[in-house]
Design a protein around this nucleic acid. Sequence first.
DNA 1: TTTTTATCGATATGGTCATATCGATAAAAA
DNA 2: TTTTTATCGATATGACCATATCGATAAAAA
Lengths: 221, 221
Amino acid sequence: MTGDISKSTLQRLPVYLAYLRTIPPDGPEHISATALAAALGMGEVQVRKDLASVSDAGKPRVGYRVSDLVETLEQATGCGNLHSAVLVGAGNLGRALLSYGGFEQYGLRILAAFDREPLPGTASGLKQPVLPVSQLPHFCREHQVRIGILTVPAEAAQDCCDTLVNSGVQAVWNFAPVRLTAPPEVLIQNENMAASLALLSHHLSKRLTGPPDRETGGLEK
Amino acid sequence: MTGDISKSTLQRLPVYLAYLRTIPPDGPEHISATALAAALGMGEVQVRKDLASVSDAGKPRVGYRVSDLVETLEQATGCGNLHSAVLVGAGNLGRALLSYGGFEQYGLRILAAFDREPLPGTASGLKQPVLPVSQLPHFCREHQVRIGILTVPAEAAQDCCDTLVNSGVQAVWNFAPVRLTAPPEVLIQNENMAASLALLSHHLSKRLTGPPDRETGGLEK
DNA sequence: TTTTTATCGATATGGTCATATCGATAAAAA
DNA sequence: TTTTTATCGATATGACCATATCGATAAAAA
C-alpha cells in the first residue's frame, strides 16, 4: 500500500485478479492469501507480500474481502480503464494479435493497424482497418492513442518506435527482437516470443544430449 | 563456455542471433561485443558476458568470427533443430498463434491443435487440423511431440497440462494466467500477456494521475 | 473471560543478475 | 622491435527479488 510496486509483483497481480473474478457472487465473501496461493499453486508468502503492496485491508483469520480486493487490483494494474492502442506491422504476427479479441478483458482496445502496404477496406477480414503508416501520427493524436504495439521486422522496429513516440504514444509493446531506445518517460515493454522459445528449445536439447545424472530440476521454483 | 547458461542470458541469445543473421555474407568477417551492443542498444558488458558464457573464441581487437558465432548461438539456443509441438485450445488466441507461421524460424513446428470442440477437416481455414482432445495422447506419442502450447482458459489449464505431461511432453508453453504444477523434469514456460499489459496500463495510469515532478524513468535500464 | 488458532505484516537471509572496474592480450602503429 | 590501443575475460559491488521465520492480531473456541 506504499505506492511503489515492484515490477515482478505488478506482473503477478493480473493472475490474482483473473482468479478472483471467477469467484461467483454467492461464493465466500472473504479470501485469505493462503487460500489464494493454494488455488494458484504459488508460494503463500509471495502472495501475501504482493497483496500487502497494494492493500492493507487484510485481517487476521479472515483474509481480504473479495469484492474490495478485486477493485483494489483493478486500480493498481490499471486494467479497469480501457486504453486505446494501435498496432504497427500487419504481418503474420500482427494479424494474429488483431484477430485475438482477448485484450479488451485486460483494458486494451486496438483501434487500427498500420502497415507499409495497407489493405483496402475490409479486405483483410479483420474488424480493424489496416491503414498506411503515413496516417499514423494524425490518427494517434486524433484518438488520443497512448499505446503502440510493434509487430514489424527487427530492422524497422526502431524507426516505427520513433514514429509512435513522436505521435504522442507513451508506452510501446515491442514484439520485435531488438532493444529499442526511447525517451525515459516512454515505457518499452518487450514481449520476446523468441526468447521464450529459446528457453524451451534449450531445455529439450539439454535432455536430448543426455542428462548426466539425476536432474535437479529447480526451474519455476 | 562453461555449460551453465543463466536464464536471462539464454533469453537474450536469440536477439544476438537474429541480428547476426542479418549481416550479409559479403559483410565484415568479425564482430566485437562492443559493436553488437551498439547495434542493439544494449550494455557493452552484458553482451560480452553473455557471449562469454557460450564461446571463448573472442579475440582482443577483432572480436568474434560472425559465422562461428552464429553456429555457436544456434547450438546453445537449440534453434537449430526443429521441434514438434501441439497446441491445446483453439480459441481466439490459439487460432491466432496457429495462423502465425513465424515460429518455424526459431525451431518450432506446430503439427496440430486440439480442442474440446474439434473442427471437421479444413473448416477452420488453418493448415493444421483441429482434433478432439481425446486423440491427444496417441498423437503425441506417435509424432514424438515434446512441446505443448497451452491456450485454454485458466480453469482448464492444469487438466490439459497433466494430459500433455502424461503424453510424454517435456516442455509446456503456458499462455493461461495460472501457475501450473508439473514434475520437475518438465519445463513450464509462462507467457503471460496479461502480465505485460499490466505493466503498460500501470505506466499509463501513473502518468495520468499526475507525475509528481520530474519522472526519473529508470525502466528497461 | 480466557485460550486457542489462522492469518497478517515485518524482518532477515540467500540467490540471481546487471553494472562497473581492471588486468590481460593480440593486432596495429610507430 | 617497441609502443599503442581496442577488445576480451574476470572480479567486485549493489540492486532486486524469492523464501523463510517470527511476532502481532483478531476471530473462534473453551
